[in-house]
């Protein structure tokens, strides 16, 4: 009795379709702000999807995932600063840098488990954060402005907002597809098996360490891609990109949206970032409606509402938003 027309599937499809028509909507209404906002959302969704791969399928809770946003961004920024604008050089270099960082830190981190893993990934991210702070030649604390976006010759022009948005969106869809294929492959089975019982997996002769490390590297490189796009979008990269609270944001997106599905983190990224933008207005309008007073001052304190909301999601919606839509069915 399985139907694909569940409320959840319709909404998920609606969300994806909505993402696809944003540029048209922005064009018609002349609302450029929504383009900027959603480009950011799509990019951070890529990062959240990559985190979700290691976190919910691999059981590796990384509290330092923002490091890859920074490494990817800085690779683009530094190359551009040194006069190398070609995207054909910048992007591979950035991804290889992320892959190497993931390989080294992953090989060390994967020796630990649970909370220790959370904290050692955080430690490595903090180290790379302080490397960013110390890059005097590249702006140190103040960050590095990128004057020219990655140049792909006549192939594609990233300076065009609509083109750039679709590049990000296609990257997001490709990432989701890749994650989906990965988790449903033999490789994905090993990763999920290692999450639920590592010892048993090794006992039946599977070198889980290697599989988990490869998975960690793949996720790091995917997130590096998000870092490349983020730096191109903002035309700027700074150590704040890889502050530990940013890693926290990524975890929030994945958990808020719902772990255990490929689409969950995307839902979470959209929900969190849209909420951040709209909550001040909602507070002002609802406050005005309830109290009859002018509530413009209350707008500032939207985090006072967001904080408890996150707590409520944790307490009463354990599968995140996606879990709610599935009607509490747990798998």
């Amino acid at each position: 009795m399985k139907t694909i027309f569940t409320v959840r599937n319709v909404l998920v499809f609606g969300l994806l379709a909505f993402l696809a028509v944003i540029p048209a909507y922005a064009d018609v209404t002349g609302n450029t702000f929504i383009m900027t906002l959603f480009t950011r959302i799509v990019i951070l969704a890529i990062a959240a999807v990559s985190l979700n791969l290691i976190m919910s399928y691999g059981g590796m809770v990384s509290f330092g995932h923002a490091a890859y946003l920074g490494i990817g961004g800085y690779a683009v920024g530094i190359l551009a600063f040194e006069g190398i604008n070609s995207g054909f050089v910048q992007w591979p270099v950035a991804m290889i840098a992320c892959g190497l960082f993931a390989l080294v830190t992953g090989a060390l981190s994967l020796r630990t488990r649970g909370v220790y893993f959370i904290m050692i990934t955080l430690a490595f991210a903090q180290m790379i954060y302080y490397v960013g702070v110390s890059l005097d030649r590249y702006g140190a604390d103040d960050g590095l402005t990128i004057y020219k976006r990655s140049n792909f010759g006549s192939l594609i022009n990233l300076s065009n907002k609509t083109t750039f948005y679709y590049v990000c969106l296609v990257t997001l869809f490709a990432t989701m597809y890749l994650v989906w294929r990965l988790v449903n492959s033999r490789f994905g089975m090993v990763i999920q098996g290692a999450r639920s019982n590592d010892r048993r997996m090794r006992a039946i002769g599977i070198p889980t360490f290697r599989y988990r490390l490869v998975c960690f590297v793949i996720a790091g490189m995917m997130c590096g891609l998000a870092g490349i796009l983020l730096a191109n979008q903002a035309d700027f990269v700074s150590p704040a990109t890889m502050h530990w609270t940013r890693s926290g944001d990524l975890i929030v997106m994945a958990v808020l949206g719902g772990m255990g599905s490929v689409i969950g983190p995307v839902v979470g990224a959209v929900a969190l970032l849209v909420l951040e933008e709209t909550l001040p207005h909602i507070i002002a309008v609802v406050g005005h409606f309830v109290t009859g007073l002018e509530m413009t001052a209350a707008r500032e304190y939207w985090q006072l509402v967001l904080g408890p909301m996150l707590l409520l999601v944790v307490l009463y919606a354990r599968g995140g938003i996606d879990g709610l839509l599935r009607g509490g069915r747990r798998d």
Binding site: V61, I251, L304, G307, L310, V313
Partner: peptide, 17 residues
């Protein structure tokens, strides 16, 4: 532990504000 991270992260936002 993930739930803890998310929930108490929310509390940080709350207390800061």
């Amino acid at each position: 532990h993930l739930d803890h991270v998310l929930g108490t992260f929310g509390l940080i936002l709350f207390f800061n504000e």
